[in-house]
Design a protein around this nucleic acid. Structure first.
Lengths: 354, 354
DNA sequence: TTGTAGGCGTTATCAC
DNA sequence: GTGATAACGCCTACAA
């Protein structure tokens, strides 16, 4: 049957009231007599009316209840990262009270020429959260701002007047380095996250270091440099255990130049480095100390407990959500800088022979 | 400045054309003279008009370009599972061509009484994809159907006339079991996924087995039972390496009753079982064979390559997306049953002493 | 190729 | 407590 779905007008007619009254029964904005309400509800269920059409409501109200979350990678890749995953949780929590849901948007191919792409340009968004730090971010930002949509940036360079949610990456990483120095380590190496989008795995030359476009990587490395200006740095191609493993193999390849401590820029990388150390017959922490970053639970790493910097990933998401919620209400939101907490585990110890 | 945003009417006026002409310039549905187009575009950029308001367009067109994806857990938990993550990727791919994006929806607390929840009831959805297998699914299903929204169910019991995307879980798992039998194993144990929402870890009694509400768990167990009717079964509380580790410890606790092969219902569980075996000083596959399920890349499991059933996770997502797309176009979509592929790795071998 | 007119389904406002 | 009215911003027959 191609009989069109019932509208609130149909319900009103059936119930013998005006459309506005019927509307009010559903929105609850204005008191309605019990008798009327009952009649309207009865009519609604008789006609199979399940509530106002969200599309029409959103046009009328000027709000869709949808917050866009923009990733710069394939969704699958994004969610491989436990930190992002936790952030999403916080974000979902924080926007729930304002009745909003999260719309997943990909950065790349937002400009596919056939215009079919579901994108920042065409989605009915109340606000947007941009995650990451690439150059594409800039572009996305322009689109959103042109549309006049409130936007918050997490871990990226936002520019004038856009609330950011960030971390004290440099200071935090410096703590880990200081910890190692206090333990007497002098031969220290660091394993960094990707220095720039699409970069391959490999040693970082000083020149490379001046050319790091990903903020997180740059800041954490700076924290290491504050304490160990000359520590060799090896860049991984992503935050995975297997990347850490590959990096660790490089680090431990030459027994004579072997570091006694490794500062990894993420817990997953650290887990890989630990595996590489085991492979090389090194004991943790007797022969090699390893620190991570993030404070996530690395599935399968037991019995080790990483010495790491615990970042408030969920809170970051929640803050982003709260900022977005505030902006939707017309208030202005401030940038927030979160602090990591140093947590000592059993993967760091005194420098051997120290 | 509270000056209202420019509309297409403003642009038309500014360009000295009619609204419909301006509209056509943006939609491209009808040829427009170059001169006119240029004038309209100029007017648009002069007024800061960035294109049709998606809210209004969606009311008019009856489509919002949004597909809801309903999870029954916290988003963070959902994305911890690589299989779900891959599915999301496939889903995103498949709905992109119809210009749709994915709206994340949580099943729980969709009924919070303050009506603020962003939910199946209030989101402007063109279609919905339900994932999982809980009782809540039933409820969600009713909501969606009442709204007359096309819906597809992945790995769950849908009921009359709703397209499902499923796997040949039982047959596939039976293959793994047969493989082990062919290798001469007789003392076999299995580690299952959660038998029911919220269940704790522990041995499954025959009674328990009759009371498994989660379909995947039940079907895969049935596959084992087809070959090993009496193999002891231990239920994990989720698909994590650490759960597999805990299960493995139970399995290997008593040296006299130790199995020579373990059939795990997921790769992550299998990885944990392998760790437990290593802990117990057992060699893989010389002392113990282990099989997994899913065929994902387990980060950090190298050098082992699991003997496992490879499920087409991305394709599942793509199929769900395609089904949804078809239904949106008004066609009807059929249920699809995917087949897993048995892949032999280096974690299974002949029964010791066999 | 361009313009005119009507309506998509709702809800805020303001009278009654 | 209830009802009439007027947008919200856009799209698409259809007519010119």
């Amino acid at each position: 049957m191609s009989t069109r779905r019932a509208t609130i007008a149909d319900v009103a007619r059936e119930a013998g009231v005006s459309p506005s009254t019927a509307s009010v029964v559903f929105s609850g904005k204005t008191p309605v007599s019990d008798a009327t309400r009952k009649r309207v509800l009865a009519a609604a269920s008789a006609l199979g009316y399940t509530g106002p059409d969200p599309r029409a409501a959103s046009l009328r109200l000027g709000r869709s209840g949808i917050v866009g979350v923009v990733f710069e990678e394939h969704l699958g890749t994004a969610f491989l990262d436990p930190v992002k995953t936790l952030m999403m949780d916080g974000l979902a929590d924080a926007v729930a009270p304002i009745g909003a849901g999260l719309l997943l948007l990909r950065d790349r191919d937002s400009w596919s020429k056939d215009g079919a792409a579901p994108s920042l340009t065409t989605a009915p968004l109340d606000a947007a959260v941009l995650i990451g730090c690439s150059g594409l971010l800039r572009e996305s930002l322009d689109v959103v701002r042109a549309r006049g949509i409130p936007v918050v940036v997490v871990e990226g360079d936002a520019g004038e007047g856009i609330p950011r949610i960030e971390l004290d990456n440099r200071e935090a990483q410096r703590q880990a380095a200081s910890h190692l120095r206090m333990l007497g380590h002098t031969r220290v190496a660091t394993v960094t996250l990707s220095p720039r989008a699409g970069a391959a795995r490999g040693w970082l030359t000083p020149d490379d270091e001046n050319d790091i476009t990903i903020e997180v990587t740059r800041d954490r490395l700076a924290g290491v440099r504050d304490v160990y200006p000359d520590a060799p740095a090896f860049a991984a191609a992503g935050s995975f255990i297997d990347e850490g493993l590959a990096a660790g193999r490089e680090l431990f390849a030459d027994p004579s130049a072997r570091p006694t401590a490794v500062i990894a820029q993420s817990d997953l990388l650290a887990a890989g480095v630990i595996r590489a150390a085991e492979e090389a017959g090194l004991r943790i922490p007797e022969d090699v100390s390893v620190t991570g970053f993030d404070g996530i639970v690395v599935d399968g790493l037991a019995p080790y407990e990483l010495t790491t910097l615990v970042q408030p990933a969920t809170d970051k998401g929640r803050a982003a959500g709260a900022a977005v919620a505030a902006m939707i209400r017309g208030e202005l939101a401030a940038s927030i800088r979160f602090t990591c907490e140093f947590r000592e585990g059993n993967t760091t110890g005194p420098a051997p022979g120290g």
